[in-house]
Design a protein around this nucleic acid. Structure first.
Lengths: 122, 122, 122, 122
DNA sequence: GTGGTCTAGACCACA
DNA sequence: GTGGTCTAGACCACA
């Protein structure tokens, strides 16, 4: 479920955070599901427990999980988080359009590139 | 022309690289224009010359500049680079669409966010 | 009567202690009332008996309950405890005022925030 | 400037965070002042650099500082943060009033306890 | 067993 | 030199 890419320049803990965010937002891990324990995941990935701990702390700080001392870490409610993620994506799109205009990419070129991606939806 | 934002989390050399790319691609610095010398720019920005050197090396590696031993660094032809930049932007747009779909952003929402940005173009 | 909030960051035993303190000080549980047995409450809340035991020990240590060997735990006289609780609240208020002053909150701002809370009393 | 209290039950890194927040919000450390380096402060306090690092990371996350790789950590603009702190204090006051009412503390008792604290202001 | 804190010490990118 | 990441391993409170 979690795979570390050592060629990726991002730190390991960040890869773990993003992977869990994905699993959570896409509903693969539902609310109140228990995450693997810090030690177990560390062993499974052959990674230091501190690194996993750092990832879990960050996930909790961002509201993706909550932890109960002595029991473990659990997935939080994700409704708000998914909304936030969508907003981020739309914001990124707006920014990209701005940059595109600055470099002379025409609206047609842009829309064209995009509509391919949405094509299969129909 | 070059302004360093110390609150920006990107490294200084990267900010310099991006700023020159912008000046070059937008035609503000034309082909064969000489860049300020490493020492001069370092002094002007109150920055370590190593940092400027790193930025210049990177610009040359990416084809934005060429250096002549004993003379200095100069702006390269930009036609290909601008094309490449545009492609990068369109590629980014395609990727963003893919992510948007994965998180359930509808085509309408996406197109809406974008068209606002292009509106003033008409 | 007792509800555990697993999303609460305080330990479970502490939540139980506070809940009983509340029930006792507000007179919902009168003097000499018997508390549920450790085992029963543990079962009812689906919680480790050790955790309940820890809470009960703490309640007794603070004078909220007394235990009779072989019989169970009972609510203690609460007069002194309620007085103590009130004193704690007033002490907290005094401390908060001190901090407020240190950070430049004016008396007016402070009184204002407070009087809203007391308004309905009239 | 920074003193660790080992009898304090809060973790060391948290004590450091709070102490810096205080120094910053009270204007003792002005904007863009450089913080001691992670290593120096670690040596000075006889504490592991990781612990200082954790504190600095938290300060930056909360917007109290910004860090420049290779240069150091610096105090951020504090206007918004002071406002936020004041709001927190007023919120705490409101909450305290609510609790006070629940335990039967009268408005007079409460106002009395408070006004002592504000007395010297006149 | 579970998360959280801390020490000791290494290595990296950046300036 | 400076912050940031990571490993290795210990100890604590809590369940």
């Amino acid at each position: 479920m979690i795979v570390i890419d050592y060629k990726d320049r991002r730190p390991i803990y960040e890869q773990i955070v993003e992977r869990f965010q994905e699993l959570i937002l896409k509903g693969i891990l539902g609310a109140d599901t228990q995450l693997p324990s810090v030690r177990n995941l560390a062993m499974e990935l052959s990674i230091n427990p501190n690194t996993i701990q750092k990832a879990y702390t960050e996930l909790e700080r961002q509201g993706y999980t909550y932890s109960v001392k002595g029991k473990g870490s659990f997935i939080a409610e994700t409704d708000i988080l998914l909304k936030k993620k969508k907003d981020e994506i739309l914001e990124a799109a707006t920014l990209l359009v701005k940059v595109a205009k600055e470099y002379g990419v025409s609206k047609d070129e842009f829309i064209n590139a995009i509509s391919n991606g949405f094509k299969e939806e129909a």
